[in-house]
Computed example of a mutant assay.
Amino acid sequence: MKVGLYFGTFNPIHTGHLIIANHMAEFTDLDQVWLVVTPHNPLKKKSTLLEDHHRLEMVFLATETYDRLKPTDIEFRLPQPNYTVHTLAHLQEKFPSYEFSLIMGEDNLNSLHKWKNYEVILENHDIYVYPRINNENANEELINNHKIHKIDAPVIEISSTFIRNSIRDGKEVRPLLPQKVWEYIDHNLFYKK
């Protein structure tokens, strides 16, 4: 089975995440897309994150009606902070018959050379890249690598930061969130201050 790993803090998961994940599951050779809820991205301040179990619950709520999208908390049990190369090694050991690929935006591809052991990742895993609007600084060497697959996916410019700030400011953001995710956020009064 070929599994695409879509990593994120999902703070919160929004319709843009679902559009990308579903597009990768339906319009590439991936059999499933696993949404890997990251407990702590080394590049983000942990203080801005909701607790891990709340973000995981929102990903469950958002994906429960999609057969090919699967939430996973695999990184919750790995040493912190998480590095993708370690997560991939752990998954390959746990699921030896699966072929794991990464899903990322063009903006992340540009900084891939800064990732821990990125050469090992590129050597052993395909990377499916979705477009971003502002991507003038494309890394030509990486884009032309045979392990990199640029996918003609919808360009989505919704951010979790924008949603959090909008909720804090009392703005209507329901169209940007799956209904059950909005209800969960609203019920728990998340992102209000």
Rank of each mutant, 00 (worst) to 15 (best):
V3E: 08
V3D: 06
V3R: 13
Y6F: 15
G8S: 03
P12M: 13
I13E: 04
I13C: 08
H17C: 05
L18A: 05
L18H: 03
I19C: 13
A21F: 01
A21N: 00
N22T: 04
A25I: 01
F27S: 07
D31Y: 00
V33H: 04
V37Q: 05
P39M: 14
P39V: 07
N41D: 12
L43H: 10
L43R: 07
L43M: 14
K44D: 09
K44C: 10
T48Y: 01
L49F: 10
E51K: 14
D52P: 00
H53Q: 15
H54P: 01
L56D: 04
L61N: 04
L61W: 03
A62N: 03
T65M: 12
T65W: 03
D73R: 09
D73V: 07
I74M: 13
F76C: 04
F76L: 14
R77V: 07
T84A: 14
V85A: 09
H86C: 04
H86Y: 11
T87A: 13
L88F: 07
L88A: 07
A89L: 09
H90D: 12
L91Y: 04
Q92D: 12
Q92A: 15
S97D: 15
S97W: 06
Y98G: 03
Y98S: 14
E99D: 13
F100C: 11
F100T: 07
S101K: 01
L102P: 00
G105M: 09
G105N: 04
G105W: 02
E106P: 00
D107R: 02
N108F: 08
L109G: 05
N110L: 11
N110F: 11
S111N: 13
L112D: 06
H113A: 14
W115F: 10
W115M: 11
N117C: 06
E119S: 11
I121W: 05
E123M: 09
E123Y: 00
H125M: 06
H125G: 03
I127Q: 04
I127R: 02
Y128F: 14
R132E: 10
R132Y: 08
N135E: 07
E136M: 09
E136V: 07
E136F: 10
A138D: 09
N139C: 10
E140N: 13
E141Q: 15
E141S: 12
L142M: 10
I143Y: 11
I143K: 14
N144P: 00
N145F: 05
H146F: 12
I148G: 03
H149W: 02
I151N: 02
I151M: 10
I151S: 01
I156P: 07
I156K: 09
I158N: 05
S159A: 09
T161D: 07
F162C: 01
R164A: 07
N165A: 09
S166W: 01
K171Y: 02
R174H: 04
P175E: 08
L177C: 05
P178D: 08
W182F: 15
E183V: 00
E183L: 12
E183Q: 11
I185V: 12
D186Q: 14
N188M: 13
N188F: 15
K192S: 12
